[in-house]
């Protein structure tokens, strides 16, 4: 197990296409008792290694479904999903997943919760110990390693979940509304930290969010989805500097343009209600 690699150091990723994630003409249909539901239709996306891509859209438009497809937790009804050029046919191990709820094990301390990832993957203990210390320092959890989840605030719990997702240095990190349950202030702090962590790790990130500001501040590109059946309405390039001070970014004309455009798209697609 090479613990020291990042996306840029993974020549194996550059097979066939070179994209980190490729979604090709994907549709997802669910069959419920009453009717057939089309959650996603005709979705095609290409995400380059090291990109930070946000996905926004109305509730129930299939944003989370998209992440489940990439992780292999769900199979598309038609179309293809590729991770590093490989067809996704079942749960993938080479990803990190962060859910809206931290999904921590109550009976494990913060450190032990992070280590669950290593235990499941049977990673060598000596290497992992150092990696956990690194992550704890990086996410500002120092001093809370031995706290149990119920002793941690929502923000701290989500940091633990993030450490757990990053432990094995996944080339792709999938985040499903990770900060949705946090208060506005903590959420901003977490945004700044996630941006920094992304730059330090070089991981490809797919972030599903309801916050337009969060989507634009963090991402290189924002995918705006239509309501169900969800498909890509527009992909917005965020032309902001790599170094993003939170307050300053908010007042950039480009930030206003991007958030305004997204708001228009989401507003236009929801006026039908």
């Amino acid at each position: 197990m090479t613990v020291g690699n990042t996306t840029t150091q993974r020549p194996a990723d550059a097979t066939a296409t070179g994209a980190a994630v490729e979604i090709d003409q994907v549709a997802v249909r669910f069959r419920t008792k009453k009717k057939d539901v089309t959650a996603l239709r005709d979705v095609s996306l290409r995400i380059e290694p090291g990109e930070f891509v946000s996905i926004v859209g109305a509730s129930g438009c299939g944003k989370s479904t998209l992440l489940k497809l990439v992780s292999g937790l769900l199979r598309p009804s038609s179309g293809q999903v590729r991770l590093h050029g490989e067809d996704v046919r079942g749960p993938r191990r080479d990803i990190g997943y962060v859910f809206q709820r931290a999904a921590l094990l109550e009976w494990r301390t913060a450190r032990k919760n992070i280590l669950l990832q290593a235990e499941m993957r049977r990673l060598p203990k000596a290497q992992v110990r150092q990696r956990v210390d690194e992550l704890i320092a990086m996410t500002g959890l120092t001093g809370f390693e031995d706290a149990y989840p119920n002793e941690l605030s929502g923000g701290m719990q989500q940091r633990v979940a993030l450490c757990r997702a990053l432990l094995h240095r996944p080339p792709v990190l999938l985040m499903d509304e990770p900060f949705g349950a946090l208060d506005a202030l903590t959420r901003e702090q977490m945004n700044v930290e996630l941006r920094r962590i992304w730059r330090e790790t070089g991981t490809t990130v797919l972030l599903v969010t309801h916050s337009i500001a969060e989507a634009v501040y963090l991402a290189n590109r924002v995918i705006v989805m239509t309501p169900r059946p969800g498909t890509v309405a527009e992909v917005i390039d965020v032309d902001l500097p790599v170094e993003r001070d939170y307050g300053q970014t908010m007042s950039e004309p480009e930030f206003a343009r991007a958030t305004g455009r997204i708001r228009d798209l989401l507003g236009a697609t929801t006026t039908a209600e």
């Binding site: 489940k68 191990r93 499941m120």
Partner: peptide
Amino acid sequence: QLSATMGA
């Protein structure tokens, strides 16, 4: 699901 992504 988390467990599945960990390859458990």
